[in-house]
């Protein structure tokens, strides 16, 4: 997967197709993971971002290759959108040799530093302070890099969120916080857990930030708003806090059927999901539907081939469990 960078601007039509292609690849990838999970091929949980692809793809599309992004256990889409190799990501999920974290991270910690994706963290809110540190370093080094930090709606109620946004605003750091408001924190609707209207946007003014809200299922709208925030941050304009409305099409994790959600709500969400909408937008802008069908077929084949290859790969060498604790490569704590 490639990411469209600012200096690599295409015509809008091309760009919209690329965004669709990226979202579609991620959708098929996540669906495959869901199936593999249910077949018992995965060890450990899988938190899928099905339905939330437009945020990852739209945001990544406005970043420079050397920009930083960082996210949560629901982070597969974010890694792939930055260009992490899908085969290595899937190998990590399936516990195969060549896994992007060597089998030591698994589904919740997918990371691809080489592609600017500085990790997926599974303690809710914990990576916001870390993201602030990435942005602080860019400011000190004057590199012009921007950090995007993705987190869920549930994370706004934990202390680390407030400490991090406060510090970023105080130091005017080049960082864009993107709250993926999928309406639920695990099994509880976020509306039942906040005394304000919106989890992130309603908190923005406490840090002197503008309340920014975007339709997180509209990939172009995401790219536009996040792009403007990124440009501003890069120019020294300080942080932004964006709330992107979306919906988790499946349960909290692959093990959760999501039965606590009203059926009508899920049905309604299915009509608003980002792929349907981007496809309709492409067709109404004149894209030949046959081209889209060819694209969709190609991606379906690619993802199933990918899964076959990874499933056939060997398991990791048990001896590698002792590596990667220290920078010298080892794990010795005593002589």
């Amino acid at each position: 997967m490639t990411q469209a960078t600012a200096d690599e601007r295409r015509t809008d039509g091309d760009r919209d197709t690329v965004l669709y292609e990226q979202m579609l690849f991620i959708r098929r990838f996540l669906e495959k993971v869901d199936v593999l999970y249910r077949q018992g091929q995965m060890h450990g949980p899988a938190h899928l971002g099905l339905g939330q692809e437009a945020i990852a793809v739209g945001a990544a599309s406005v970043l420079r290759p050397d920009d930083y992004s960082i996210g949560t256990y629901r982070g597969h889409a974010h890694a792939l959108a930055r260009g992490a190799p899908p085969e290595a990501v899937l190998a990590e999920l399936l516990g195969r040799e060549g896994g992007i974290c060597g089998g030591k991270g698994g589904s919740m910690h997918i990371t691809s530093v080489e592609h600017g994706y500085y990790g997926s963290y599974a303690i809710v809110g914990a990576h916001l302070p870390i993201a602030v540190g990435l942005a602080w370093a860019s400011r000190i080094k004057k590199t012009g890099q921007v950090t995007i930090c993705f987190f869920g709606d549930g994370a706004v109620n934990i202390g680390a969120f407030h400490e991090a946004v406060n510090l970023a605003a105080l130091w005017a750091l080049p960082i864009v916080f993107v709250c993926e408001n999928n309406q639920y924190m695990e099994y509880s609707p976020i509306s039942s857990m906040i005394p304000v209207e919106r989890p992130a946007a309603s908190r923005a003014s406490a840090y002197g930030l503008e309340p920014l809200v975007v339709d997180g299922n509209d990939v172009s709208a995401v790219a536009e708003l996040v792009g403007a925030a990124v440009d501003k941050a890069r120019d020294g304009g300080g942080p932004a806090l964006i709330e992107a409305d979306t919906y988790r099409l499946k349960g909290h994790s692959a093990a959760d059927a999501g039965a606590y959600r009203p059926a009508e709500e899920v049905e309604q969400a299915r009509t608003q999901e980002p792929l349907l909408r981007q496809r309709a937008a492409l067709v109404s802008a004149g894209t030949d539907e046959q081209d889209l069908i060819r694209l969709e077929t190609r991606i379906a084949i690619a993802v199933s081939g990918l899964a076959d290859r990874v499933l056939a790969a060997p398991k990791p060498d048990p001896a590698t469990v002792w590596t990667d604790v220290w920078a010298d490569g080892g794990s010795r704590w005593r002589n």
């Binding site: 302070p129 870390i130 602030v132 540190g133 942005a135 602080w136 370093a137 680390a160 400490e163 510090l167």
Partner: peptide, 12 residues
């Protein structure tokens, strides 16, 4: 949390 987390991010 922000102090220690920022140290980590900056180290990365």
């Amino acid at each position: 949390q922000a102090i220690v987390g920022a140290a980590m991010g900056a180290a990365m």
